[in-house]
């Protein structure tokens, strides 16, 4: 399972030791319940990811919840406009801790091609984002990769903010 620690003196005794946060993280990362904030074409790719061909349930993420109070992963997939941003903030606030956010696609991450008056130029200005998914729209493989990165954050292999840190120094 990847959470056990073997202590040599206990080898072969029929039990193993571990840490409580590792056990909880192991349970959490394999039963993520996503809230689909689908507002545009990225949501179609998200549905494709959930379908049997790409089958996100292989990673334990198949229980889509339409109530933020029952979910721990917010997938922002699509454009967010002026009228929608307070709704998104409220949904984020209603989700119980611990919670993670995927910003899927160019529009959710940066505003995309819509440099216009109602379009939010990146939801990360107003809610914290853990993983960005590039693409317009991203392929289902990209979203699966993002979910795997969220799993890495949950079980402690990666720090929070590791995937949103700039990899190139700004000049």
């Amino acid at each position: 399972m990847g959470i056990e620690q073997m202590i040599p003196s206990l080898a072969g005794e029929g039990f193993f030791t571990t840490q409580i946060n590792k056990v909880i993280g192991w349970a959490r990362k394999n039963s993520l319940w996503p809230y689909p904030f689908g507002t545009a074409c990225c949501a179609i790719e998200m549905m494709a990811t959930l379908n049997s061909r790409y089958d996100l349930s292989r990673f334990g993420t198949e229980v889509i919840r339409f109530s933020p109070r029952q979910s721990d992963l917010l997938i922002v997939s699509g454009r967010v406009v002026l009228k929608m941003m307070p709704v998104l903030t409220e949904i984020y606030q209603q989700m119980g801790e611990p919670k993670w956010v995927i910003s899927m696609g160019a529009c959710a991450s940066t505003g995309g091609v819509f440099n216009t008056y109602p379009q939010i130029q990146g939801v990360d200005q107003f809610i914290p984002v853990d993983v960005y998914v590039p693409g317009c729209p991203p392929r289902p493989e990209s979203l699966i990769d993002a979910v795997l990165k969220i799993q890495q954050i949950i079980d402690g292999q990666a720090e929070r903010g590791e995937f949103t840190r700039p990899t190139v120094e700004a000049n």
């Binding site: 984020y92 939010i120 130029q121 200005q125 107003f126 809610i127």
Partner: peptide
């Protein structure tokens, strides 16, 4: 005129 940047962080 800046309406799209004028929200409060969660």
């Amino acid at each position: 005129r800046g309406e799209r940047d004028n929200f409060v962080r969660a």
